[in-house]
Design a protein around this nucleic acid. Structure first.
Lengths: 144, 144
DNA sequence: TTAATAACCGACTAAAATAGTTTACTCTAT
DNA sequence: ATAGAGTAAACTATTTTAGTCGGTTATTAA
């Protein structure tokens, strides 16, 4: 399951993606708009900022804005920051690999073999879908 | 992430799939072979039995065996018993649908839209892969 | 230069999910 | 009868998730 953290992250990035040419937006405003607990959102935005996705400015008139083109922010990158691995088993993870506790013979494990395929299928979609795509999908759903 | 429960379930079914023409195998034997805590495995096998995948027999000489062809037991069915939904968001689940807490406009949600695609890609693999496939994949990995 | 605004940061807490364990019971073969 | 083996519910411990709390630092405007 996708964590709330990840959902909140995507929602915040979508809002900021729609705010590209305006002055930075405050955490409190994003939190109100999407009904996200403010202090929790602070943590999340900070993680995204430290990962280089967001620009932030302190003080009056400060806030957050995207640090790059929404077309270049892909779901896979966000999820790796907020949830960690994409694969459903650690031994099939590209960026967060580690051995499964239970596993004795990793190289000949049929479960791993299948879940490498699942990972690849998931990864294909998540690494092709950007914040800009989410925004345009929502437009298409509103005006079919 | 795949739960240990699901991994144990698959491993147990694989063992029983290799034991098709022999007398039923005891929980304790499966537990020892795969180093699964016995009492935990009991719960899991019971769930699989109640779902119709296993035949069980009590008393001396009793144990478990598969109730159907390993070619007809698919990962998707096992996972739905042990872990529940396949989709990463409840609103995209076919068998365990419910609304996301956070979501206000489900029909126009871009996140849902993407994760329906992810679900379909995952589902395709998991509903095509059987216990027999896992066994033959392991054979191929051992003898390339 | 002080007050207000808003992000930054670390530590703490509550609730839920996961991974078991305990205890007792039921059925079956010998 | 009794020993072997599955059935069942309830309980417990650990880990993860989803927050909260209290304060600090940087920036702007009065």
């Amino acid at each position: 399951m996708l964590s709330k953290k990840t959902k909140y992250a995507i929602k915040a990035l979508v809002i900021l993606g729609k705010n590209m040419d305006q002055p930075p937006m405050q955490i409190s405003r994003i939190a109100e708009t999407e009904r996200i607990p403010k202090k929790f959102l602070e943590q999340i935005l900070l993680d995204l900022r430290n990962a280089g996705f967001l620009y932030s400015k302190k003080g009056a008139g400060g806030g957050y804005s995207l640090n790059r083109d929404p077309k270049e922010i892909f779901l896979v990158s966000i999820m790796r920051i907020t949830d960690g691995p994409i694969a459903m088993v650690p031994c099939a993870s590209l960026n967060f690999y580690h051995k499964c506790d239970e596993c004795h013979q990793e190289t000949t494990c049929g479960i791993r073999d299948v879940f490498v395929d699942v990972r690849d299928a998931t990864l294909k979609i998540l690494s092709e879908t950007s914040i800009a795509d989410i925004i345009s999908r929502e437009q298409s759903l509103i005006h079919p």
